[in-house]
């Protein structure tokens, strides 16, 4: 399996594929079951955001080896309308898509590192990393 690959995130089926590939990567890195479940769930949330709010995009999966630490970094990118107020978007329960509004905030809680870049009109990029 490659250490760095990019998957399309355009349809509901793509979300399923992203979940499966993230799971395989997490197993390969040696995450325990709870860690696997957390990163796969975070990936599912962000992939759905990419489709619902960004109009589709891509998911990049990178297996990391940093000295003695192993981890998984996921980057979701879209060319959608972007997020005008990131602080607000990160609040629990804030939603524009009719969901529960837990996507971004939840994904942040499920990972060790979280980074978001967004410009109105240009798109959004969310990067999460989970270390073993």
């Amino acid at each position: 399996m490659p250490d760095d690959e990019t998957l399309p995130v355009r349809s509901s089926n793509d979300i399923v594929v992203v979940r499966q590939v993230v799971r395989m990567r997490a197993v390969e890195i040696g995450f325990n079951l709870v860690e696997q479940t957390k990163i796969v769930t975070a990936a599912s949330e962000l992939a759905r955001n990419t489709i619902d709010h960004g109009g589709g995009g891509s998911a990049r999966l990178q297996s990391l080896r940093n000295g003695g630490r192993a981890g998984l970094r996921l980057t979701f990118e879209d060319k959608g309308p972007g997020i005008p107020d990131i602080e607000l978007a990160l609040k629990d329960g804030y939603t524009t898509g009719g969901g529960l509004g837990l996507g971004l905030s939840g994904a942040r809680r499920l990972s060790n590192e979280f980074e978001i870049q967004s410009r109105p009109g240009e798109g959004t990029r969310v990067t999460i990393t989970r270390w073993k």
Binding site: V34, K38, T41, L102, S105, G106, R109, L110
Partner: peptide, 9 residues
């Protein structure tokens, strides 16, 4: 269950 709780659900 652990993940759902962390997610806030």
């Amino acid at each position: 269950a652990i993940t759902l709780v962390e997610l806030g659900l």
